[in-house]
Amino acid sequence: MSSNKGLPVTIVTGYLGAGKTTLVNNALRKANGLKLAILVNEFGSLAIDEDLIISQDENMISIAGGCVCCSYGNDLLLSLMELAKLDPKPNHIILEASGVAIPSAIETSISLIEECYVESIVALVDAEQIRDQLSDKYVADTILAQIQSADLIFANKIDLVKNLSDFNCWASNSPPLDSCICVSHSNIELDVLLGVKRVGESNPQGPHINEFWSKTYIPGAPLDPKAFAKLLSGSDLKLVRTKGYVRGTDGKTYLIQTVGHRYYIDLSAELKEPGVVLIGSKSSKHESEVLERIGELRKKSDV
């Protein structure tokens, strides 16, 4: 699949109390020049931390650093189209879905408009509550549908879980939570949430991230970009995100991006040095293990 030309949208899903609003505010604090547009279902004093707000009218909150926040009520697509018309144009849209929305349905809807495309679906679950929630008579099926359609699942508030090994054991036997990444306080770096910076772009904070590791992988010889992207997004490696350039067997340069099991491949206009930044979670697989496994997989499947 190729990424479209429109604005990238990250859908943040999760039931009430999972930490979506905190995640959004964290992202705004870390935006660092990136112009983020936040779309929330509920537009109120609670959506955005007060110290971040510059001004507010009925339709939009202006936020420090050129970011904005709007509510969409029942007109999601219309709101997205309006955001895409903003000048200056936002770099990225974070859509905080309502606690009962099914993100896959939102993604299909967004596919109808050319202004935007869904870059990834990120689900947050409340690690302390999720076991009870998944047996709740009213919302279990809704929450399951949310995490089933996510590319990345974060088990948030992990610091509140009393018996961590018990949780890990339960999660690893409860797909799709077996691939969840444990975090606290919705603390997820922008690189992980919205996509890694490309090779060569400056990264003032350095490559190392709290619960994540990051490493640049240089694929030696030209390869089939699709097969390689599939490999990187396979369940085996448990990579969170990857992004970078590869040389195709046709001699052309391709930009590949993966997030969870989702991948995008785009032909690059410029000739770039091959190199793909990999981000993995320390809680699932360590970098040396991943690099070794990539080598094995490439050999095995002749990529």
């Binding site: 009520g73 007109d75 999601l76 697509l77 219309l78 189209m81 939102i106 299909t108 809807s109 109808l112």
Partner: peptide, 16 residues
């Protein structure tokens, strides 16, 4: 459904 209707609805007189 509203998701399919909205993007076209605005062009045929049905808006928010």
């Amino acid at each position: 459904g509203p998701d399919a209707m909205t993007p076209i609805g605005v062009h045929v007189g049905f808006n928010r």
